[in-house]
Design a protein around this nucleic acid. Structure first.
Length: 282
DNA sequence: CATATGTCCTGAGAGC
DNA sequence: TGCTCTCAGGACATAT
């Protein structure tokens, strides 16, 4: 599912659209529900057509195209969204097509199987309002140990659940939360208030390490195949998952424990009871 | 204020 | 074969 590494990979995969002028935006008809989109299609098209993209960047789990106006295009793939520079897998789930003034350049396609993805065109003020620091915690690649400790020292929530809270730290999703805590040897059910600074230090270090490694591998494509890069390739990090999706298999870290799956906040959590002992709590 | 739950959406796979 | 059911989980709205 597009979490930070997958969205970062999407951004890098479409970096070449920076500097290009958008000729027009098409919204193919479909029998499916529209994805959430603001403003409505005619206004969206009017404000984007003829504009140049001055920058491609990532904010948490969103892909941003800054235009040469004060507007920014914001793609939020959520579960099944793809940002593609290739032919999409089908016509039915194409949500928007950005065509460039240089007709030789492939169009940028926003494709999503489900209607959970969103597409927005926001002014600078709206952007700050929607995904600025008041709404999101620090980016996971930049988060500090002190931030985690101070922000969560009074929290009774389980650490796994807290890591998924984008207001605490932005960019971690369900797959990487399990991988991070496993490598940091912290049990996912431990209340944040009981985690020592020393353990927060390991969580911080493994957060950066896991996410950077996942970016190098171009993200994780699970068996559902939902995530693809902008060039329509699968990622490679799923082969390096140590716990996620490995229920009942041997722990790849200690070789002794058996990976367990539990459910926290309606989401699967995977961990090794040997590496991540609750009693130790560190 | 902090925390928990419900909701959206579609396709895959299971079970009958 | 074909139907119904459950599950997956991003982020937000609403409830406690």
């Amino acid at each position: 599912m597009p979490e930070l590494p997958e969205v970062e990979t999407m951004c890098r995969g479409i970096a070449a659209v920076a500097g290009r002028q958008v000729h027009t935006v098409r919204f193919p008809k479909s029998h499916l529900c529209d994805i959430e989109m603001r403003p409505a299609k005619p206004a969206f098209r009017r404000r984007v057509a003829g504009r140049s993209i001055i920058r491609v960047r990532r904010v948490a789990k969103r892909v941003i195209l800054d235009l040469d106006s004060t507007d920014s295009v914001v793609f939020e793939p959520r579960m099944t969204g793809r940002v593609l520079l290739t032919e999409p897998p089908d016509r039915v789930h194409v949500r928007a097509v950005f065509e460039f003034a240089d007709a030789d350049h492939p169009p940028l396609v926003f494709w999503s199987m489900r209607g959970l993805s969103t597409l927005r065109l926001l002014t600078a003020a709206q952007l700050a309002d929607t995904i600025g620091p008041n709404r999101l915690g620090p980016d996971a690649l930049l988060v500090t140990t002190a931030h985690l400790h101070q922000r969560l020292r009074a929290s009774r929530r389980a650490v796994k659940v807290a890591l998924l809270d984008q207001k605490v730290v932005a960019g971690i999703g369900n797959i990487y939360a399990s991988e991070i805590l496993h490598r940091a040897r912290v049990h996912p059910e431990i209340p944040c208030s009981r985690i020592t600074p020393r353990s927060w230090q390991r969580v911080q270090a493994e957060t950066v390490a896991v996410l950077e490694e996942a970016i190098r591998a171009k993200g994780s494509t699970l068996r559902d195949g939902n995530y693809r890069t902008a060039a329509d390739e699968p990622g490679g990090f799923q082969d390096r998952h140590r716990v996620y999706g490995r229920e009942d298999l041997k722990c790849l870290q200690c070789g002794r424990g058996t990976v367990r799956r539990i459910v926290q906040a309606q989401r699967s959590t995977y961990f090794c009871p040997v590496c991540q002992r609750k009693a130790r709590g560190k």
